[in-house]
């Protein structure tokens, strides 16, 4: 059954502002974090578009209870917003969000749908006595783990997510290599996005970018 994304609330910004929709679409996670720390509310729209689908599939595989998954991600995003002023400048946005979500998943282990599986698996893991990695490494692995699961996303979403990451890289590279202002880079990326949007159809982009 086709879903018409265009009729959905993507047009209205999360905090009721309009015309800001595409402002953050071409920015890197670092830039998003910068604006988030300054309390720019519209940035939450972009964070939502960028992460929600990904987080949802990640959590759902560990806790197959749709309402519970919804609550977990909502809570994580609200926490991110509430803690915006306390975030360090070098916070890694993906890692921060994935950690918020992981802690909430672990907190729901009493849910009957997963309880036995979690406890049995953790017990086996403990009994095996594996060597443990340090926190920094675990953080990296967590990012890899979640983002690897992009494979489970529907094909169109997957494409978009990967493009967003690739664009983020080229954004960085262009700025470094061509010694041009970030503004120029942004304009270029934006026009690239516009082309892609025409190619892929506006519907998907109205929600995810």
């Amino acid at each position: 059954m086709p879903i018409n994304l265009f009729s959905l609330p993507g047009i209205i910004s999360l905090l009721g502002r309009t015309n800001q929709m595409y402002k953050y679409e071409s920015q890197s996670n670092e830039e998003l974090l910068h604006h988030l720390r300054l309390g720019r509310t519209e940035v939450m729209d972009e964070i939502y578009r960028r992460f929600y689908g990904l987080l949802y599939s990640h959590v759902y595989r560990r806790l197959p209870d749709r309402e519970e998954v919804r609550d977990i991600i909502q809570e994580a995003l609200v926490t991110l917003w509430n803690k915006r002023t306390q975030l360090a400048e070098d916070t890694n946005l993906s890692s921060y969000l994935y950690t918020l979500v992981r802690n909430r998943v672990l907190n729901t282990y009493r849910n009957q749908k997963v309880r036995e599986a979690y406890l049995a698996s953790l017990q086996t893991f403990m009994d095996r006595g594996v060597s443990l990695t340090d926190e920094k490494l675990r953080e990296k692995e967590l990012i890899a783990l979640v983002e690897k699961e992009v494979a489970a996303l529907p094909p169109q979403m997957k494409l978009i997510f990967e493009m967003s990451r690739n664009l983020e890289m080229s954004h960085q590279q262009i700025a470094d290599e061509l010694h041009i202002s970030p503004h120029t880079v942004r304009t270029q990326v934006r026009s690239a996005l516009r082309i892609l949007r025409t190619k892929l159809g506006a519907h998907i982009f109205s929600i995810f970018f």
Binding site: I73, F125, M126, M157
Partner: peptide, 29 residues
């Protein structure tokens, strides 16, 4: 221990369809 286990936890394959996910993305917004 807990966090390393989480990274190693083998999850069942997802039975969530594209439609389900899109629906969730929309109501979540």
């Amino acid at each position: 221990v807990v966090e390393s286990w989480y990274l190693n936890y083998k999850t069942p394959p997802s039975d969530l369809t594209s439609e389900d996910l899109l629906y969730e993305v929309n109501i979540g917004f």
